[in-house]
Each structure stands twice: as structure tokens, then as C-alpha cells.
Write a protein that binds this DNA or RNA. Structure first.
Lengths: 81, 81
DNA sequence: CTCACTATTTATAAATA
DNA sequence: TTATTTATAAATAGTGA
């Protein structure tokens, strides 16, 4: 979608490339979520599993801190079932 | 951050502008989350409260559907406390 | 994994209708 | 107001170290 070449939105089969793209886009997504929460004074919670199964939880507003952890727990439990 | 002029990342005080920006950026954030989930074959869950308190829940992968709803419920309950 | 570079695509702020 | 347009800012794909 951006950069040197336009890419199709479909699963990246190469594992290394998938990991690199995940890192880059996760960073971008977290930044966007942060900006939206500040600009619009809203609560946002973002949960992601990396291709290797690592969980990222992001909730920019302070009062989301505890809920985020709790939600992550349920998410993890349920998704792993 | 984008567009005709660079803006500072701080709360938009004008209510109408805040709503417009929320709509635009929510759309962008959901698109980015969708793309990341497809490209990297990951589970993502995104929860947002609009400036007027409306909840948006987004989980692009099918198997996130139920967890998303459950998480939304806990999020709502806890955040409202 | 992480950083930098940068051409190119995408997102969006402001303007316009 | 809501929708569309457009000029510009920002994100990022590919590449290399």
C-alpha cells in the first residue's frame, strides 16, 4: 500500500518478510491509535498477536491500563482454546 | 499529521472538528488493522469509544468474533466503573 | 532483530461544493 | 450540515548495512 511498490493485501508467505512487516506496521498502528486517542480524547485498546504468538497490548489512556491487562488475559485464554 | 497542514497531537477542543477527525481516523485505523491482520496472518482486536461514548469493536479474523464480543463486554463494564 | 534511506503510496487537514 | 476534492504530511516496501 505504501512505499517503493504497491503490495496486495494478502498473507505474506515468506516468514522473515512477514515478521519485518509485522514489526513495521505494528509500530504504525500503535502510533495511529495513540494519535486518535489524544486528538479525540477517546479510550482505545489494541491487542495483537505477532506471527510468532507474542501478544502486544496497547491502551494509551491511563485509565485503560488495568482493563487492558484484564482483557488481554481473557483474549489470550479464549483465543488459545 | 497529514493533509493540508501539519497538526499538533493534542486534544481537539472544537467538538465538531473532534467528531469529524474521529470518524476519519477511526476508518483509517480499522483499515490498517485489517491490513496487518491479513498481511501477517495475525489476530487483532481493536476497541474504541467515540467522543460521544459509542463503542466500536473490530476484530478482522473470524475466530476473533466471539472473543471480541466478550472482551467488549468486559471492557465496557470495567471502563464504565 | 534493528536501524537508515528514500521512492512511492496512502492517509488526511483544509478547502470546496 | 454532509460529501467530495486536493495539496500536503506521513507511512512504508524494498533495500542494504
Amino acid at each position: 500500500m505504501m512505499g517503493r511498490a504497491k503490495i496486495e493485501i494478502k498473507r505474506i508467505e515468506n516468514k522473515a518478510n512477514r515478521g519485518v512487516t509485522y514489526s513495521k506496521r505494528r509500530k504504525g498502528l500503535i502510533k495511529k491509535a495513540y494519535e486518535l486517542s489524544v486528538l479525540c480524547d477517546t479510550d482505545i485498546s489494541l491487542l495483537m498477536f505477532s506471527p510468532t504468538g507474542r501478544l502486544t497490548s496497547f491502551s494509551p489512556k491511563q485509565r485503560c491500563y488495568v482493563p487492558s491487562l484484564i482483557i488481554s488475559f481473557f483474549f489470550f485464554v479464549i483465543i488459545s482454546t
